[in-house]
Design a binder for these strands. Structure first.
Length: 602
RNA sequence: UGCCUGGUGGUGUAAUGGCAGCACAGGCGACUUUGACUCGCCUAGUCGUGGUUCGAAUCCACGCCGGGCAGCCA
């Protein structure tokens, strides 16, 4: 249906926000559908952000619009370029081939000084074609960059002056503690500040001096003049600007007053020509303020509107920045890109395709209900995607030596193995069967449980792509541990041979002991042992001690030339990908996810 | 206890006054040189009580239960 490469198999279902946008498109309310994804550059993106990203970019994609990546960087104390770079890279990876053509980037240096009659910079009005910018970017040009709220500090300042002139904002001298006390409580009205009724001229003068750096941090603020008795506490004369004598990572050292979120966000949306501003449910009480500011300034319509939806809460996962940081700091994980973490960089390193993340977050839908999504839904999306793209290989995680006594030492038997059985016309490769091979420890049981289809003393199994073997002898060491299995191969059961159709219950994977290579393989499991670690008093007490198991595996030789983006299915085991820790002399693979195992459950 | 907001199988969602559907999970079976995949079948739901209506998950009232809001964070 879609011509888009790498498009999700399922179209995004309709939801209340899409319905609203569709209505607005039908009535031509906006010249263009413009959305935005507005992270603060103070941490890494995680799968929860992926939901917001796919909603905002999806809306743009479905309505021939654009979605701006805008850094909401109004707090100089918490932000850094390090995060700008990682967030930008994560987003580009996440939407590549799906909605990257909708990514709104602006030409470097195109700042709001270059404005049109209604005060908006001209880059959103169509004078710059986002697709041109994106092609510049993808060819390595540094001529385009994301949007930054801090690029609007001049415009925001001018709007603040306008608000003062309209009598809608005032400079307050209350201390932070007094401000709190005057605000009242949700069930108790606040009180007017004694500074609330200063003249416009005095406010103008004071705000200019605040901006000029005359006052120390915390001495004064700029506040909207709304209603200290409002039942909505966010309308009790919210702060617009605070004094912060600190340099800004992007805006430099020009400013010592910085706008607050509520003030900066709606106006940044306005400046960029955003039509639909989607955020999470905790901002519902802020919407009245969003609308108030735009109205108080008398800005021309159509104005952007805020819509709120529920965040993603997956089971067995922790998503808050603070908590992920704690896992990193206390070395439960190795870093922000640890494959056990729900960060985008972690998921990517784990080998999860961007398309699987997209399909998952799109599939859960967009509602206003605080729901919990079972991680199994994500796991299904991962397997579904990997099953179609991953090439099959043979690998043995916990090798046990097996000697085929009727194959001579120098002999090697060529077997044809299928790379991509999920395709209509699968390709194949050759693997070698030799006298000595390895099989997985799990695939042999000296005293088998009921219904055990694998190898057991005196029993038969098929070696995948090769032949049926029979276990004649179990060799053990002094301690009683199995050191070697001695079997006979039935060559007539090979593909193309007379008995090739002979059936046995079990088929197991294997690699030649001599024609195989060593690799470190990291087996990951859920990071937490309970479905809702966030509900625990301390989630550290429910960290899964077995979330990482590292083994030295034997792989078929072709895996030696694996590339970082390759995805493999090690047959009967799971999906694997090369880890960046790999080097020419030391291969490292990550298990992205095991295959579904209905046998193990029983 | 002020204001805002929500409640559909175990979980996530759809149905926008007209057959409660889909996906995941779970169960049974078929197929299988992956105990995977695929295919077939099954289990299971409208928070409660009234009302409006020919007809209510949907509209109204009351109740019950949950989430959010009092940063010079975003």
């Amino acid at each position: 249906m879609s011509a888009e490469p790498n498009a999700p198999s399922a179209a995004a279902p309709s939801d209340f926000i899409r319905d609203i946008v569709a209505r607005h498109v039908a009535e031509k309310r906006y010249p263009k559908i413009v959305t935005r994804f507005p992270p603060e550059p103070n941490g890494y993106l995680h799968i929860g952000h992926a939901k917001a990203i796919c909603l905002n970019f999806g809306l743009a994609r479905e309505n021939h619009g654009i979605c701006n990546l805008r850094f909401d960087d109004t707090n100089p104390l918490k932000e850094d370029v390090e995060y700008v770079d990682s967030i930008t890279a994560d987003i580009r990876w996440l939407i590549a081939g799906w909605a990257d053509h909708c990514l709104g980037f602006k030409p470097k240096g195109a700042l709001p000084a270059n404005t049109t009659r209604d005060g908006r910079p001209d880059f959103y009005l169509g004078s710059v074609d986002p697709s041109t910018l994106n092609s510049q970017l993808s060819t390595g040009s540094a001529n385009a960059e994301p949007f930054f709220a801090s690029d609007y500090f001049d415009a925001l300042h001018d709007f603040a002056v306008e608000l003062i002139k309209r009598g809608q904002a005032y400079v307050d001298d209350l201390s932070p503690e007094e401000t709190d006390a005057y605000r009242g409580a949700p069930d108790k009205p606040g009180r007017d500040s004694p500074w609330r009724n200063r003249s416009v001229d005095e406010n103008l003068d004071l705000f200019a001096r605040m901006t000029a750096g005359e006052f120390p941090d915390g001495a004064r603020t700029l506040r909207a003049k709304i209603d200290m008795a409002s039942p909505n506490v966010w309308l009790r004369d919210p702060l617009l600007y605070r004094i912060r004598h600190a340099p800004h990572y992007h805006a430099g050292d020009k400013w010592c007053v910085y706008p607050l979120y509520d003030y900066a966000h709606c106006l940044s949306d306005y400046i960029e020509g955003v039509s639909h501003s989607a955020c999470s449910l905790e901002f519902v009480p802020h919407r009245a303020l969003y609308d108030w500011i735009l109205a108080a300034l008398g800005l021309p319509r159509p104005l952007p509107r805020q819509y709120e939806f529920a965040k993603l809460v997956p089971t067995y996962t922790i998503l808050s920045k603070r908590n992920i940081l704690r896992l990193v700091k206390e070395k439960v994980v190795t870093g922000w890109d640890d494959p056990r973490l729900p960060t985008i960089s972690g998921l990517r390193r784990r080998g999860i395709p961007a398309s699987a993340i997209r399909n998952f977050v799109i599939g859960v839908g967009v509602t206003t209900f605080n729901s919990v999504t079972e991680i199994a839904v994500f796991e299904h999306a991962i397997r579904e995607e990997l099953n179609t793209i991953a090439h099959r290989r043979l690998a043995v995680l916990r090798p046990v030596k097996l000697v085929l006594t009727n194959i001579s030492a120098g002999e090697s038997i060529e077997c044809e193995a299928t790379n991509d059985p999920q395709n209509e016309n699968p390709t194949t490769r050759k693997i070698l069967l030799t006298r000595e091979i390895f099989i997985d420890a799990d695939d042999f049981a000296e005293v088998p449980p009921p219904k055990y289809f694998r190898l057991k003393p005196g029993g038969e199994v098929r070696l995948k792509y090769a032949c049926i073997i029979k276990c004649d002898e179990v060799v053990k060491d002094a301690a009683g541990a199995v050191t070697e299995l001695r079997c006979t191969a039935d060559r007539a059961t090979r593909a193309g041979q007379p008995d090739s159709a002979r059936k046995v219950k079990g088929t197991i994977h294997w690699v030649s002991a001599t024609e195989s290579i060593d690799a470190e393989v990291r087996l990951y499991d859920r990071l937490f042992t309970v479905p809702e670690p966030g509900a625990e008093e301390d989630f550290m007490t429910v960290v899964n001690p077995h979330s990482l198991d590292t083994v030295t595996a034997r792989l078929e030789p072709s895996l030696g030339s694996a590339k970082p983006d390759d995805r493999f299915q090690f047959e009967r085991l799971g999906y694997f990908t090369l880890d960046p820790d790999s080097s020419a002399s030391h291969l490292v693979f990550n298990r992205t996810i095991p295959l579904k195992d209905t046998w193990a459950k029983k």
